[in-house]
Structures are given as C-alpha cells and as structure tokens.
Design a protein around this nucleic acid. Structure first.
Length: 601
DNA sequence: ATAGGGTTAG
C-alpha cells in the first residue's frame, strides 16, 4: 500500500489529538473525510470508520454517506456497498454518494446500476446531483448510448434546462464529437451562465475549431460576462495548434497585468502552450516564475522538455524534484518516459519504467506501455517491443499498437507492421492514418498490389484521408497551405521562391530522398510530388515575408516527411535561418544544417 | 439550516 500523502498524514495526526481530548464532532469528521476523499489513504478512512462505530451512530447522520463516498473513491467498492446496505434510512444523499463514488472511479456499469435501482425506488426525489455524476461517468467512458438515455431522462424529469445538467450534457456531447447536439442544447438554455460559455469555448477547441472557441469567447463578453480561470485556460488551449506566438505573448501580458500570474493553473497552461508553440525558453521562464510549482507544473515542464527532445534535462528536473520531496504520479512518469523515448535514452527509459512500479508503487498504465513500445521501437528493438506488448497485463490500445506501427514503418518490418496496422484498423476503422501507414509499409517493400488493396479497402469504407496542412503566422494572420496550393494571393511569388530554393539546394549538393514517395512512379514524377508538400510551400512563404533575424515557425497537422526534413536542414544552412517546424508529434528546430531531433523521430 | 462533480492546467 502506498504511503499516505504528507499533508493528509499531518491532518490526521492533528485530528487524532483532538479526537482524544475533545468530544467527537460530527462536522469535523465529515470535513476530514471530505479531505481524505482525494487522498490515497484507506487506512485513515478505516481508522475513522472504526472510531465512528464506537462513538457515533453513523447510521443517523450523513457521515455514513461521506464514508461511503470515501471508500469508493479510494477503490474499496465492497466496503462501501456493505456500509451502504447498513444505513437503514437511506435518503437521496446516501444514494447520490454511492453514485458519485462509482462515477469518480470511472466505473460506469456500477454507477448506472445504482442509478437505475434508485430510479425505480426513489424516482420522485431524483435531483441534479443524482444525474450529473452518471452523465460524467458516461462522458469519460465515451458511452454514447447511455449518454443519450440520460439526456432522455433529463427531458422526462424536466431537468434538461437546469443549468448544471445542461452544462454537463453539453460537455458530454462535446467529448463525443457531437457538436451539433451540444450547440442545440446550448441554444435552448434561456440564460447560459459562465460555465455554459466556458464549456462551449472548451469543446470547440477539443473538436478542432479554435476559431469557434474565440467566437464564443467574444459572444460571452458581449453578453456581459467576465472570464474566469476556466475561460482563460480554455482560450490558451485554443491557441496550441496555431502559430500564434505573438497573440499568446499579448495574452501573457494581460495575464500578468491582471495578477493572474499567481494562478498556477493558468501559468501551467501558459507554460505548456509556449512549449507547444516552440518557445521552450519562454516555457522555462514561466516555470521559474511560478512561486510554488506543484506536481502538475513540474510534470508540465518535463513534458515540455520531452516534446523538444531534451531528455537529459527532463531527467535532471525529475531527479531534482524527487530529491526535494515531490511525489511523482503516473502522469509524471508518462512524460518522463516520453522524454526518454524522444531522445533515444533507451537504458534510462527502461530504468524509470522499472522503478516506477518497484520503487514508487505506480502500476504501469496503457500510456506507459505506449511510451515503452515507442522507446524500444525507435531504437529498432522491434522484437523487444513486441514481447512487451505480448506480456503486458492490460489489453493493448491504439496508442500501444500505434507506437509499434510507427517503428515498423521506419524499420520496414512488414510482418509486425501488418499485425499492428490491422489491430489499429480494428480499433478505429475511421482513422485514415492507419490505412496510409499500412499501405506505405507495403509500398516501401515494393509490394504495390498489397498497397493498393489497402487503399481500396479504405475507400470502400468511406474513410477520407486527412490532408496535410501547414500553417504560418504573418501580419496578424494565419496562412494555411495544403499540398500543391495555389490559393494564396501571392501564390506565384511563393512558388517561384520555392523553385529557386530547390534549385539552390541541389546545386549545393542536396540529394532528394525520393524513396519517401510511396507510389510506383518514376523518379522525375516523385521529385515533382515531393516538392509540392505543404511545409515546403509554407517555408518558401516564410522566407519571402520574414526578416532574417527571426525564426520561421511552421505548424503541420501531420508528420513531416523525410525529404522535407532533409530539405529544411539544408535550407537552414544555406539561407542561414533558424527554422522551427512542429509536426503532429514533436518539434524540429533547424539551425546550421542540423535538427534538434538529431534525426531521431 | 448542513452534505453530494457543471466547465478549466501536466
């Protein structure tokens, strides 16, 4: 069993003192249990339970409910249910505690069962605090069917427009990707409150429409509401896939002026945002200025180092913080392992994966396995990675197979790649990337027939290929390019610049990597295809419009191809420019002919 | 009179 967190053990010792000297006050016990709810200490919970049994009749008060809730949230459902059965006069609060407990554990089926039992016994008394936890459990379990059923219940009981219920449903639909339903519900609310607006801002971003997020923010202001912490965090998130460093710097200034830089949640969001925008120094500065960085903040800093490929620095930070008494959790380890993986630190990664469970008592989750498969796979240790998957105690998910698939593509392993891709396609038949990946593996091996079969099956299922898009910021605008894009007002100039660039690097000895074109066509056609890639067009535009002392920052929604990667390295050398490209996976900072990823990606 | 997850950071 894990050691209780320090804060709670100190609360508990204080409490014991009072306990023996002062008569036991129910409210004290209750608030203490409330505090324990978020801790990992079932021993504290049991101690209180025992004490309560001796000195209080918990069956009469709400302390029983709180104990029920505590036990469940700590993962002791059996104790909770036993206790629940012992409460003779169970009121709605008792039921709600049980439901809420299962919801917090993410146990949808138990949550739903209790809810249905309650509904048949207590249907008249059901309130919003009964329904909301069940909706929330559906949201995290992505249970669409059950979610719609609950929506129906809310309608039936006339609770649909109660703001808290409506907001939780809006959020649920947003998480499901059903923006239509969410919007419809939102429009029905007579007077949306701050949380309603915040939810809209958040779900727009979650569904890939950041401009929708900004629009809702503006409408919210127009309706006379003032933003709060949640609004700002959601807005910062809306910026993370756009090249909007200057906008973010403005927001940062406002945050500073309003004194919100004291708010750890906001500064942590800002930290991670800067890192996603390629400004690791700005991230680090924000981190150092946080007066009391918590675990989330320093885990975020580790994540920032990870996506920039600074594995050693991430490890240093981790070790320093642990020496200072910070207790890492499963998320901290996810970022640490990811840092090892992005920097090729295989032995270190193995070490931390080992001590995570053996020293820190944290059982590896799916994310950790994904990181380990990635770590081994990038090094070419495909069989080790495969063995890990075979022996893992959890059912591997898309993240795990995806990591293996990525490695198979790089190391051209057809057999394992096929298995991984088929698993991925079974898990998510609508994700075009899996088909493309499998097809590319076949193409790379010259198996053109197999490749075209995969593409055909993708087409037959109506899966549409995600188009590559590159973004670049200039003149307070975001410019967007797709492959072979001539839609920009300055298209002619841009393509002329690109041609000139290609000619220049060839003269300087650049050898194009046409084998990254996975179509059965001759070399010249391949050259033509490669040189139309959206990131090259964006690069040419960047060279045209930016001054030579500022870095060119490009964002891409998919991964950069090998030829573009080499091209940009060459351009950074001969044009003497700093170029930063963030693809869907990580950062590439190009300078003097080399990339920060060390070609390890 | 009380208590019981609406949104938002790693």
């Amino acid at each position: 069993m894990r050691t209780p967190k320090k804060i709670y053990s100190s609360v508990f010792s204080e409490f014991s003192l009072q306990f023996h000297t002062i008569s036991c006050r129910e409210s004290l016990l209750t608030s203490l249990l409330f505090a324990l709810n978020s801790s990992h200490s079932v021993s504290c919970c049991r101690a209180i339970h025992a004490r309560v049994l001796k000195s209080l009749n918990y069956r009469d008060g709400f302390i029983g409910d709180q104990l029920v809730s505590s036990y469940i949230s700590l993962g002791f459902a059996d104790d909770a249910e036993k206790l629940f059965d012992e409460i003779p006069h169970r009121d709605l609060v008792s039921w709600n505690s049980l439901i809420s407990g299962f919801s917090k554990r993410g146990d949808l089926s138990k949550c739903m069962n209790v809810f249905l039992t309650l509904k048949s016994e207590f249907s008249l008394h059901m309130n919003e605090l009964t329904l909301i936890p069940v909706v929330s459990a559906c949201t995290s379990a992505k249970a669409r069917h059950e979610g719609q059923y609950l929506h129906g219940i809310a309608v039936k009981f006339g609770m649909k427009l109660e703001s808290k219920i409506a907001n939780s449903l809006i959020n649920m639909y947003g998480k499901f990707g059903c923006l239509d339903s969410a919007f419809r519900l939102f429009l029905e609310i007579p007077e949306p409150n701050l949380v309603s607006w915040n939810s809209m801002v958040a779900i727009c971003t979650q569904n890939g429409i950041p401009d929708g997020a900004f629009q809702h923010f503006n409408m919210m202001k127009h309706n006379g509401l003032l933003p709060d912490e949640a609004t700002i965090v959601a807005l910062l998130q809306a910026c993370e896939n756009l090249p909007v460093v200057k906008l973010v710097e403005t927001i940062h200034a406002v945050i500073f002026t309003c004194g919100l830089d004291e708010n750890v949640t906001i500064t942590t969001s800002l930290l991670i945002l800067y890192s996603k925008l390629g400004r690791l120094h700005a991230s680090h500065k924000v981190f150092t200025e946080i007066s009391k960085p918590d675990k989330v903040a320093w885990s975020a800093m580790i994540a920032a180092y990870a996506i920039h490929g600074h594995g050693e620095t991430a490890i240093e930070l981790f070790e320093r913080k642990v020496r200072q008494g910070m207790e890492p959790d499963h998320v901290t380890f996810t970022h640490l392992l990811s840092a090892c993986s992005h920097s090729g630190l295989v032995e270190e990664g193995r070490y931390y994966f080992h001590i995570m469970s053996n020293v820190f008592g944290i059982q590896p989750r799916l994310d950790h396995y994904s990181c380990m498969v990635d770590l081994l796979g990038r090094r070419g240790l495909l069989n080790d990675a495969y063995e890990l998957i075979k022996n893992m105690p959890l059912e591997p998910n898309a993240g795990v197979w995806g990591a293996l698939l990525g490695a198979c593509r790089v190391y051209r392993n057809i057999e394992l790649g096929k298995e991984a891709a088929e698993k991925m396609i079974a898990l998510d038949p609508l994700d075009s990337r899996n088909y493309i990946m499998l097809s590319n593996i076949y193409s790379a091996a010259g198996l053109w027939d197999d490749a075209s079969k995969v593409r055909a099956s993708m087409k037959a299922k109506g899966v549409i290929r995600t188009r590559g898009i590159s973004f670049i910021e200039h003149g307070k605008k975001i410019h967007r390019f797709v492959v072979d894009d001539y839609s920009h007002p300055d298209a002619n100039k841009i393509h002329e610049k690109l041609k000139e660039l290609v000619r220049k690097i060839h003269e300087a000895g650049f050898v194009p990597e046409t084998d990254s074109v996975l179509h059965n066509v001759d070399e010249e056609v391949k050259m033509g295809m490669i040189n139309k890639h959206s990131e090259k067009i964006a690069l040419a535009y960047g060279l045209l419009v930016t001054s030579s002392d500022e870095p060119i920052v490009i964002m891409k929604n998919l991964r950069i191809c090998r030829d573009c990667h080499s091209t940009v390295k060459f351009v950074s050398l001969i044009e003497k420019r700093a170029i930063i490209i963030r693809d869907s996976k990580r950062f590439h900072q190009f300078l003097d002919g080399s990339c920060s990823c060390g070609d390890y990606w």
